[in-house]
């Protein structure tokens, strides 16, 4: 409860600071939205030429994409500090202050700054989900309605865990190795049915960097693709395992934090 109220406080403070430059925020939202629209455009053009992708219809792919975008949107809102962590917190030594407060360091890093414009992605994702669901005449059961938000949470946790682990590298290596952008660019691979990939990519996306568990697999139950059911039920487990791993690696990193000279 205390954490939730602090989180709200952090968010409103940050929003206030961002709103001081309204024009800047507006442009950021617009840019972010254009990028989202462009990626939908890609799907649209693709399906202009082919009517289905290995038995998957356009609307089904929109559904998967919408789900992925919703999770990714939440992730993008929270991950702002992860990208700048090495520079802002480790090299500049700002992490000292984080460690002096009676809150878990990861909580502070995730919730001290927000990429507010990415809330647009959450919204667009939900709209896409609604549109695709309506077109596909999906009739979700009561259980599915309850499972949906759980799946979104799992997706966000999986995205966050992967990038928390990658960010933790900065605790040991001050040099910017630039491992985050290439991995980030792999996220779109998770948005397609894994069966369109070769075995190597399937394995990579499921078990090494489990993006498929944050976008494709969680949608299969709602889309009535029974053949993927075992994967669907593994989603919470994958989220729990990657979340635990991320926390362990992070805590390990905090222990080897060397701070800076004064």
């Amino acid at each position: 409860m205390r954490h939730l109220s602090i989180l709200i406080h952090y968010f409103s403070q940050y929003l206030k600071a961002r709103l001081e430059y309204k024009g800047d925020l507006l442009i950021a939202v617009f840019t972010s939205f254009s990028a989202t629209v462009a990626s939908f455009g890609f799907l649209y053009i693709l399906f202009h030429r082919v009517s289905s992708l290995q038995g998957w219809k356009f609307e089904e792919l929109i559904f998967i994409y919408g789900f992925s975008l919703t999770c990714l949107g939440f992730f993008n809102v929270l991950s702002l500090n992860l990208y700048e962590f090495g520079e802002r917190y480790i090299m500049e030594g700002r992490f000292d202050q984080v460690l002096l407060r009676p809150l878990h360091s990861l909580f502070q890093i995730l919730f001290e700054a927000f990429r507010i414009e990415s809330l647009q992605e959450v919204l667009t994702g939900l709209v896409a989900l609604g549109y695709a669901g309506w077109k596909l005449r999906l009739q979700p059961t009561v259980i599915e309605v309850f499972l949906f938000p759980l799946m979104v949470v799992c997706g966000v946790v999986i995205y966050l865990s992967i990038f928390i682990i990658l960010t933790s590298v900065s605790f040991w290596f001050e040099d910017r190795i630039g491992i985050i952008p290439p991995v980030y660019n792999m996220i779109p691979f998770g948005r397609y049915p894994t069966t369109i990939y070769n075995v190597f990519l399937q394995f990579l996306l499921s078990w090494i960097i489990p993006f498929a568990f944050a976008s494709f697999y969680p949608t299969t139950l709602f889309l009535d693709r029974r053949e993927f059911q075992p994967y669907f039920y593994l989603v919470p487990l994958v989220a729990a395992v990657s979340g635990t791993m991320a926390l362990l690696v992070w805590n390990r990193g905090v222990k080897s934090y060397q701070s800076t000279g004064n």
């Binding site: 205390r2 406080h9 952090y10 403070q13 700002r94 202050q97 002096l100 407060r101 009676p102 004064n262």
Partner: peptide, 27 residues
Amino acid sequence: VVFGQRTQLWWDIAVVESFQLLKKIYN
């Protein structure tokens, strides 16, 4: 804790808002 070289306050917001955040964090 006070480090002379570095502030523990949030850079972009008014001092009193930093104080209120701390008030919340420390209950």
